[in-house]
Simulated assay, not measured.
Amino acid sequence: MSLQRSPPTGSHLDLTKLRDFDSSQGITLRKKKSPECEITGFREELSNSLSSYRRDMSETLAAFKESMMASLKELLDQQSDKICKLCEDISDVKQHMSYLNKTTENMSCEINDIKLNITTLNKQIESTNMRVCTLEKELSEKNHVITSLSTQLGDREQQGRLNNLEIAGIPFKRSENLNTILNCIATKVGFIISPSDVDYIHRVRRYPRNDDNKKTILGRESSDIPNIIVRFTQRKRKSDMLAAARVRRGLTTADLGLDGASRPVFINDHLAPHNKILFGKARKLGKELHYKYIWSRDCKMFLRKSDTSKIIQISNEHDLNKI
């Protein structure tokens, strides 16, 4: 391997060493050196070049090292900041986890308490349901007893009116004589009545009915006119007069010679209030279903749709379903 010589950096030519110089040809003639001198010079130049190169490399490495250290320091600072922030975040997460753990424990305790309360409530509900069932059974039995007692009371109340007749439609006057009115009615219907037949006679306010909305000539409701109640000493005599009155239909106040506008007069059994309501419902339902006969006898209510159909007795609300 041959090495080309180059003049050392920063070296100066020594013109005094030139033997001759041909200016006409522009050639400098140098004195030929010996090989030992050339090797020595080459070594010096190489040593100088290596020293310069080492110095340059040392400076370059120092600069590179300084730059790398600065970059590394900056990177480490950034990483340190990130690590610090990450540590803070981890600390916050730990705190939150600790709070969540406590909250979970509290919730677990509360859930256990709720489960215990639910179990207790379920037992109470079961106990309450059993008590309710027992009370419902007792209430049903008592309602049955009350219904039975009410029926018995109603029957007794109605039984106390079996000898009574109720006369409606007679206008009220302060100076009236009810016995005279009764005798006049008996004469018109063809019934002979004696003083011994009547236990007592008096007026009583008529029990209002749902369909009783017609007005009198005085502008008052017909239910405002007190009816006349006649109690007979014998039930047969009452039944005989009621039968005679039903044969003589269309009786009015004009037929009785009473003052004022002519009004229809009605003679019926003296029904207890609950039976009046029941009879009113039976009459309304019977008319809607085109029943031909609707009547009462001895305070008992009956319906018959035609001459050949079966007679239906109405004793309570349930019997209305038979119509």
Rank of each mutant, 00 (worst) to 15 (best):
K137L: 04
K123R: 06
T119S: 11
V145I: 07
S127T: 12
N117M: 04
S148P: 00
I146S: 10
N143I: 07
C133W: 10
L139H: 13
L139V: 13
L116Q: 13
T147D: 06
K137Y: 12
K142F: 10
K137G: 08
L121Y: 12
V145P: 00
L149P: 00
I146P: 00
N143S: 07
E126P: 00
K123A: 03
K123N: 06
M130K: 15
I125D: 00
K115G: 01
Q124F: 06
E141C: 01
E141R: 02
L139R: 15
L135M: 04
S148G: 01
S140I: 07
T134D: 09
S140G: 14
T120H: 13
K115Q: 05
I114E: 04
N143G: 02
M130T: 15
N117V: 07
H144R: 12
I118K: 09
K123C: 02
E141S: 05
E126V: 10
C133L: 14
K142G: 08
V132L: 11
I118Y: 09
E141D: 11
L116F: 08
V132A: 08
K115D: 02
S140K: 14
N129I: 02
I146L: 15
I114T: 12
M130S: 15
S127V: 08
T134F: 07
I146A: 11
T134V: 06
V132C: 06
T147G: 01
S127A: 12
H144W: 05
K142D: 13
E126N: 12
T134Q: 14
I146C: 09
L149M: 13
N129W: 02
N117P: 00
V132F: 12
N129D: 07
L116S: 13
S127Q: 14
I118E: 08
I118V: 14
I125P: 00
L149N: 11
L121K: 13
T134G: 09
K123G: 01
E141F: 06
N129P: 00
I125K: 02
E138Y: 04
R131N: 08
Q124M: 07
M130N: 15
V145D: 00
I146Q: 11
C133A: 15
T147Q: 11
K142M: 14
E138Q: 03
T119V: 10
R131T: 10
L135K: 05
E141T: 12
N122A: 03
E136M: 01
Q124S: 12
T134E: 09
E136I: 05
K123I: 03
N122Y: 08
S140H: 13
C133D: 15
H144V: 07
N129V: 02
V132S: 04
E136C: 01
